[in-house]
Deep mutational scan, measured.
Amino acid sequence: MSGNGNAAATAEENSPKMRVIRVGTRKSQLARIQTDSVVATLKASYPGLQFEIIAMSTTGDKILDTALSKIGEKSLFTKELEHALEKNEVDLVVHSLKDLPTVLPPGFTIGAICKRENPHDAVVFHPKFVGKTLETLPEKSVVGTSSLRRAAQLQRKFPHLEFRSIRGNLNTRLRKLDEQQEFSAIILATAGLQRMGWHNRVGQILHPEECMYAVGQGALGVEVRAKDQDILDLVGVLHDPETLLRCIAERAFLRHLEGGCSVPVAVHTAMKDGQLYLTGGVWSLDGSDSIQETMQATIHVPAQHEDGPEDDPQLVGITARNIPRGPQLAAQNLGISLANLLLSKGAKNILDVARQLNDAH
């Protein structure tokens, strides 16, 4: 009898209710805020589980004197976190989706994509230029951005401005803007500013005609071990179906173009009346040469937790077992079709030249 009692006690200790789920994140304040929001949602869904947040620095956090596009290494903000995932030191990792490459290392998958916040870019102005827009900034004003995508589009749109690289986390960039006289304004992701509670610093939100956004911008991705079915089931509740389908289309477009950090590629997606609209573009580094096109596809946005595919093969690095396969494939095909259209119009040449120029500098 006593033996059975011990077995029952052991089973209770090993039951999922007692389990601590370890969540990996970057150390920056924004990353911690984003991770806290994901953990809060998981806690609400699984009140019996405990969650421990483990923060670590990544290569991208450490190399702050070089433009991201020049470092010449993929997975700048993800490699150390993936290493911890691989060694079973954490069970899942919360990322900004735009930091996750469209091809993940073997053994990993994006197990959830959370509801997207505003994906557009924002302009934050130096205190002396508050009330201005990019259009009304004085001639030769210097605007800071760490992104080739932003610089290429904005140089084309605002030729009277000069664009220079600015690195560091959000706090560091804002301090550089406010305390030094080098920059009249800087460009940042609206979602990051909003998550930090800095709505009052948003001086201008850039519309798609001015600057399309990065693939996955404004959404959070939760990376897990691809074979860890328990954790895949656990994080599945975080999937937002519309965000998922938009981001599958965007990531398929980028992957098929073979774009990345070192080339200016941008997108804009919208879901309306059962249609998914995808606009994508590529630019030369100075913005003088560009190709942009829009395509659409009829896609039914499923309700969360309709029964999805059981075999769960990944699409552009994403596993969404609780979302039907048909809409996911339709979104992926839309991204591939748009990429093929741009490639047929000469996108590869623009991107190759951009890559060579970026590598040469």
Rank of each mutant, 00 (worst) to 15 (best):
Q153H: 03
Q275V: 13
A191G: 06
I63W: 09
R355Q: 14
L174W: 06
Q194V: 14
D312L: 06
P302L: 12
Q181E: 14
V94W: 00
H300C: 13
K227P: 01
I53R: 08
E242M: 05
D121L: 03
M196W: 05
A360K: 01
V265L: 04
K345V: 05
G107Y: 01
A303M: 03
P127F: 10
L100M: 10
K43S: 10
N340S: 10
G317M: 15
A112G: 07
K157F: 10
N169F: 06
G203M: 02
K115R: 11
A297C: 15
G317L: 03
G203P: 01
G287S: 06
P324E: 03
L81E: 03
S57K: 00
Q181G: 11
N349K: 12
E179K: 08
P101H: 12
K70Q: 07
E135H: 03
Q180Y: 11
Q332E: 13
V282P: 01
L276A: 05
S165H: 11
G326Q: 01
I336L: 04
D311I: 04
L154E: 02
I291V: 07
L170M: 14
I323R: 08
A219S: 09
P138H: 09
A330H: 03
L76G: 09
Q204R: 09
P324T: 14
E209L: 05
M56R: 09
F108D: 01
D311F: 03
R150Q: 01
G60F: 00
N349W: 15
T136N: 11
E223V: 05
K70M: 13
F253Y: 13
I166H: 09
L188P: 05
E73W: 04
D289G: 07
V124K: 05
H305M: 07
K115Y: 06
E52L: 04
A40V: 12
Q332T: 14
Y277G: 03
L161M: 12
V215L: 06
E223F: 02
H300V: 14
L188K: 00
E86R: 13
A191S: 09
W198T: 06
L357Y: 11
K79N: 13
G192D: 05
L276N: 00
E306I: 12
L343Y: 01
S75M: 06
S165F: 07
T190W: 13
K140T: 09
A112M: 02
S146G: 12
D230K: 09
E162D: 10
I113N: 01
N322D: 15
G308N: 14
D99N: 04
I350N: 05
H268K: 09
P101M: 06
L357R: 03
R149E: 01
V263H: 04
V202S: 06
L254G: 00
E73Y: 10
R116H: 04
I205P: 01
V130C: 14
Y46L: 07
I323M: 05
F163A: 12
H300F: 14
L97P: 01
L100T: 07
T294P: 15
R149Q: 03
H120T: 15
N340C: 01
H199Q: 05
E223S: 03
A266G: 04
Y213L: 03
I63G: 12
D99V: 02
S165V: 10
Q194C: 03
L234T: 06
G218E: 04
R321M: 07
S344M: 06
L342Q: 08
L315G: 02
H207L: 11
T243E: 05
P138C: 10
S69M: 14
